[in-house]
Amino acid sequence: MNFLLIIIVGGILGWLASMVMRTDGQQGIFLNIVVGVVGALLAGFIISPLLGQTPITSGDFDIGSLLVSFLGAVVLLAIVNLFRRGSVR
């Protein structure tokens, strides 16, 4: 059940990150989910311990872990855009 929640929340965070980065029309829902989940996982393992937050994978969906996961999705989307188009936006 926790895995399903991570996919749903990751998809929403990936969609929000794509709206912030203005790439929503260029990618589908599958890439939104992938970017959101992978960005949340990477941010949860790298940034969360530095800030003293619990990662989203632990099942804690508090505002701090959601913001860290959103930040991870935005950074990952910027990296994907850099390799796909040669620019961040």
Rank of each mutant, 00 (worst) to 15 (best):
N2K: 15
L5Y: 15
L5I: 13
I7V: 15
I8W: 14
I8G: 13
V9R: 00
W15E: 04
L16K: 11
A17N: 01
A17W: 02
A17I: 00
A17G: 02
S18N: 10
S18D: 00
V20C: 02
M21R: 10
R22E: 07
T23P: 07
T23V: 11
G25I: 04
Q26F: 10
Q26H: 12
Q27N: 14
F30L: 11
N32S: 11
I33Q: 04
V34H: 01
V37W: 07
V37P: 05
G39N: 02
A40F: 00
A40C: 00
L41M: 12
L42S: 03
L42N: 05
A43N: 01
A43Y: 06
G44D: 01
S48R: 02
L50C: 11
L51Q: 03
G52C: 10
I56H: 06
I56K: 01
G59H: 09
G59D: 08
D60G: 05
D60K: 08
F61Q: 06
F61H: 04
F61S: 02
D62P: 05
S65C: 04
V68C: 03
S69G: 02
S69H: 04
G72M: 07
V74S: 06
V75A: 12
I79A: 08
I79Q: 03
V80P: 04
N81D: 08
N81A: 05
L82F: 15
L82K: 14
R84A: 14
R85Q: 12
G86H: 12
G86K: 13
G86L: 13
G86F: 13
S87Y: 15
S87A: 14
V88C: 07
V88E: 08
